[in-house]
Design a protein around this nucleic acid. Structure first.
Lengths: 189, 189
DNA sequence: GTCTATACGACGATAGAC
DNA sequence: GTCTATCGTCGTATAGAC
């Protein structure tokens, strides 16, 4: 079969999927070639910086996806509670109800290099900033909004780890349900 | 220099430290030999099952440490709140206020093999069970005690991930402070 | 129980044809 | 822009001396 090219978005999607399943160190170039349906040399043509650049591209694309799509409901109008619920539904879809891993976790171990590390930190900051804005909108002052946002992200990350180790996805579902409570400070139901 | 032996406890401690820093896939046998001050062949003498067996031993030893030492205050007498605070201090020490990773996270990615996976799941179950007992003691019924325990562990795991990515250890400190609230259901302060 | 030495496949990365 | 072929290194794992 003659050179059937792989589009950039396909490529990034397949890389993202692989890194989420196997982590940075666990995904070899052979695995990547198989998953992307490209030869190793073709991968180096697209990413001269090698695996580190691939991780940077994945972190960047995922950060962009969160900012422009997954978290976008927060920037719309309507009741804040409903916007947060919409983000919760997006998170549930992105993490497949707790069956899939978070790149913040999977890419934050190993020798990523400065580029990919910076992209990953930026993606985390974007997520936390969006949540901080929601908390502020609900009336939290500057000193409490960011902690609430960090803790809301942490609740999701931790639920994914517990779900991965125990095989029980319910902790993730509960984390999503409690997203509004954590962000806008509603007392426990 | 003639064969200067390394005790079992030293060996496990050095392996644990390495896996917590680099993860399972990120720790090569060369890294392990350097960290343990043993040659690779000596490591295979101690662990004929190779890296997978080393991970199993680390998971087992850490599970034991949690059960018999770190979580031990829960089984003493005295006010429940104070026992939980004691566990919080132990967790703060074990994770060095958020600077060190959790093995549940670092060992739950990669080809661990069935032994190590089982040991890791058992360690997680032991931790969650101990927290479940505390929640039950505080009056939670069977249906709510385990979720509370899972969520309390998840809060700590997630805080460690956020701390690792952002470099901000405060989310971890807050997770420890809120340990009692999450477990025994005290409304937010 | 530790060591030196080595097997050999997989690793990340590159060269050069098409 | 993709491919086949290959480089040198490092990966896990063993053999056998002491």
């Amino acid at each position: 079969m003659p050179p059937l090219t792989v589009t950039d978005s396909q490529l990034i999607a397949r890389l993202t999927d692989l890194f989420r399943r196997q982590g940075y160190d666990g995904a070899s170039l052979g695995d990547i070639a198989m998953a992307t349906k490209l030869q190793k040399s073709s991968l180096y043509h697209r990413f001269p910086g090698g695996k580190q650049q691939m991780a940077a591209a994945v972190a960047d694309a995922t950060g962009e996806f969160f900012a422009t799509s997954l978290l976008a409901p927060l920037a719309t109008d309507g009741p804040l509670e409903e916007r947060i619920r919409a983000v919760g539904r997006n998170l549930d879809a992105f993490y497949e109800s707790g069956a899939r891993n978070c790149l913040l976790d999977m890419l934050s171990v190993g020798e990523l290099g400065p580029e990919a590390s910076a992209k990953l930190r930026a993606a985390a900051a974007g997520w936390i900033d969006a949540f901080t804005a929601a908390a502020r909108e609900a009336g939290a002052d500057t000193a409490t909004a960011t902690p609430r946002a960090q803790d809301a992200v942490a609740a999701i990350e931790g639920a994914l780890v517990v779900a991965r180790v125990t095989g029980d996805k319910r902790p993730f579902s509960r984390a999503i349900e409690r997203l509004g409570d954590g962000l806008i400070g509603t007392p426990a139901r």
